[in-house]
Design a binder for these strands. Structure first.
Lengths: 111, 111
DNA sequence: AAATATACATAAGTTTCTTATACATAACAA
DNA sequence: TTGTTATGTATAAGAAACTTATGTATATTT
């Protein structure tokens, strides 16, 4: 992903969140979108992305539709019903995680 | 650490940040402090913590002082000069990371 | 007396990533 | 026209960070 180790473990959540928002996306599109949102800071590598997509599909969280655009193959992914439910959980976890990390960086007075 | 994968990769930053704030801490104390700050949500396991501390020490980011308290050994860790400098960088990375993740969860209108 | 808390440590295995390689088409630059 | 960059997917080998399990030892609580 990036040199900063911090992103480790967040790839699945990123994918699912983007799919929740956009409805469906293909792999390369995801990498470009993330690069755009993070202003080039987070570059998802293919070696990380494609295995992650395949695993989410195998877990029944994503469905795939293959299409040919401009004579090139695209695999569009979208959330299954199960995936949509799970995304809600993961986003809640992410918000908790962010809150916890902020408390560590900038401790509350109570600590 | 925890079932949520999100914390993967953040342990070193957490340790360094706590040491920056408290001056010096021993391993067990770190686990308790993190548990307290996160209200029990993040439990750092010994299998993760001690190797991490040893590695940070080997990298010259931490110094260690062994003391015996109540007939039990404690290894107090503190940041070296190099470690203090590096902590500034890591905290900046962490803030960027948090910002990026928030942009993904809650996209700006510009995207 | 047994269980829990305090305190450190490591080894085996798993997961998630990086790096490298591979294939294929399209567009652009030299 | 030929090489490079962009688009698009895929996998395999290795590294890194973790979990789980185990081990040692003392103090405190039940």
């Amino acid at each position: 992903m990036k040199n900063s180790q911090l992103y480790k473990g967040s790839l699945n959540t990123i994918i699912m969140r983007l799919l929740e928002e956009k409805g469906r996306m293909y792999g390369y599109e995801i990498t470009q979108k993330v690069k755009e949102i993070t202003q080039g800071e987070l570059n998802i590598t293919e070696g990380a992305l494609y295995p992650a997509l395949h695993k989410l599909e195998a877990e029944g969280l994503l469905d795939v539709e293959v299409e040919k655009v401009d004579n090139r193959m695209r695999k569009y992914y979208k959330l299954t019903e199960k995936g949509t439910t799970e995304t809600v959980n993961r986003l809640a976890e992410l918000e908790e995680f962010i809150k916890n990390m902020q408390n560590i960086v900038n401790p509350k007075l109570s600590y």
